[in-house]
Amino acid sequence: MPATHTEASGNTYQWTVQGMDCPSCAGKIRGAVERLKGVSDVQVSVTCHRTFIQRLLESDQFSCQWARL
């Protein structure tokens, strides 16, 4: 599922995830993001195809980790 970084505010990132259309997909994304070092909170919206992430890491490190998913 391709993801596009759409917005950032402070330590909160918003990603649009194409192809996420069921709760099972959302659960897999949430689980994978929760395992990333430095993530403090994850909210996934199937209806909006978006993932909201609170991070603790510097943005460069966080982006590199996200790209590996």
Rank of each mutant, 00 (worst) to 15 (best):
43 Q>F: 07
51 T>A: 14
5 H>Y: 07
24 S>M: 05
20 M>A: 10
34 E>D: 04
58 E>R: 05
19 G>L: 06
60 D>S: 14
59 S>C: 12
4 T>D: 13
8 A>H: 07
62 F>M: 06
2 P>G: 08
52 F>L: 14
3 A>G: 05
39 V>K: 12
56 L>H: 14
33 V>F: 07
7 E>T: 03
69 L>M: 05
1 M>V: 09
2 P>D: 07
51 T>P: 07
34 E>R: 04
20 M>Q: 08
30 R>F: 06
1 M>Q: 07
31 G>N: 11
58 E>F: 08
33 V>R: 06
38 G>F: 03
67 A>I: 00
45 S>F: 10
59 S>I: 10
65 Q>I: 05
38 G>V: 01
15 W>H: 11
18 Q>E: 15
5 H>G: 15
68 R>E: 01
14 Q>E: 09
61 Q>N: 07
44 V>G: 10
40 S>L: 04
44 V>E: 02
23 P>T: 08
48 C>W: 01
62 F>E: 15
51 T>W: 15
34 E>P: 06
54 Q>K: 11
3 A>S: 14
49 H>R: 15
34 E>C: 03
39 V>P: 04
41 D>Q: 09
50 R>N: 10
5 H>Q: 02
19 G>P: 03
32 A>E: 00
50 R>L: 13
32 A>K: 11
62 F>S: 01
22 C>V: 08
46 V>M: 00
36 L>S: 01
14 Q>S: 07
65 Q>A: 07
36 L>P: 00
15 W>R: 12
30 R>Q: 13
11 N>V: 08
19 G>F: 10
62 F>N: 02
54 Q>G: 11
31 G>F: 13
64 C>I: 15
32 A>Y: 12
22 C>T: 08
17 V>H: 14
36 L>M: 00
58 E>H: 13
44 V>Y: 14
66 W>A: 00
64 C>V: 10
16 T>P: 11
10 G>R: 09
34 E>F: 08
43 Q>D: 12
17 V>T: 10
64 C>L: 12
45 S>L: 09
41 D>G: 07
6 T>G: 10
34 E>M: 07
32 A>P: 03
36 L>C: 00
64 C>Y: 10
43 Q>N: 14
49 H>G: 05
58 E>N: 14
46 V>W: 01
48 C>A: 09
10 G>Q: 01
57 L>G: 10
62 F>K: 00
67 A>V: 03
48 C>L: 14
11 N>G: 04
16 T>Y: 10
17 V>F: 11
65 Q>M: 09
55 R>F: 06
1 M>K: 12
55 R>A: 09
36 L>E: 02
59 S>P: 14
31 G>D: 11
18 Q>S: 13
33 V>H: 12
66 W>E: 03
28 K>D: 15
41 D>P: 06
64 C>E: 15
35 R>C: 03
14 Q>A: 14
65 Q>K: 01
58 E>Y: 09
54 Q>F: 03
32 A>W: 00
24 S>F: 04
